[in-house]
Computed example of a mutant assay.
Amino acid sequence: MKQIIILAGTAALLSTTPAIAKPGKGNPHAGHANHQAMGHAGYGTGGCPPGLAKKNNGCLPPGQAKKLYNVGQRLPGSYGQMWSYNQVPYDLRSRYGFDPGDRYYYGDGYVYRVDPKTMLIRQVVSALLR
Rank of each mutant, 00 (worst) to 15 (best):
G97F: 01
Y110T: 12
H32P: 00
N70D: 10
G107M: 03
A41S: 08
N70L: 14
V124G: 01
M82W: 02
G101I: 06
V124K: 11
V114C: 05
W83D: 03
G97H: 06
N70C: 08
L14E: 04
Y106K: 03
Q64G: 06
P116S: 11
A127C: 02
V124M: 03
G42N: 02
Y112H: 05
S94I: 13
G39T: 04
A19K: 07
T16S: 15
Y112K: 01
Y110E: 13
G109F: 10
H29Q: 13
Y85E: 09
Y106S: 09
S126V: 15
Q87L: 06
K67L: 14
P50M: 05
P61N: 10
V111H: 08
L92I: 15
N34F: 12
G39H: 03
P62N: 04
R93S: 11
S84R: 07
R103Q: 13
D108L: 05
G77D: 13
K22F: 12
G107T: 06
G97Q: 04
P89M: 00
W83H: 04
L75T: 06
P50N: 07
A41G: 10
H35V: 02
K66Y: 10
K55D: 11
H40T: 08
C59H: 12
C48P: 01
D91E: 12
D115F: 00
K54L: 05
M82E: 15
V111L: 10
Y43M: 14
L68Q: 15
K22E: 13
V111A: 10
M38E: 14
N57H: 09
L60P: 09
G42C: 03
G47W: 00
I121K: 10
M38T: 13
R95L: 04
T118I: 11
P50V: 03
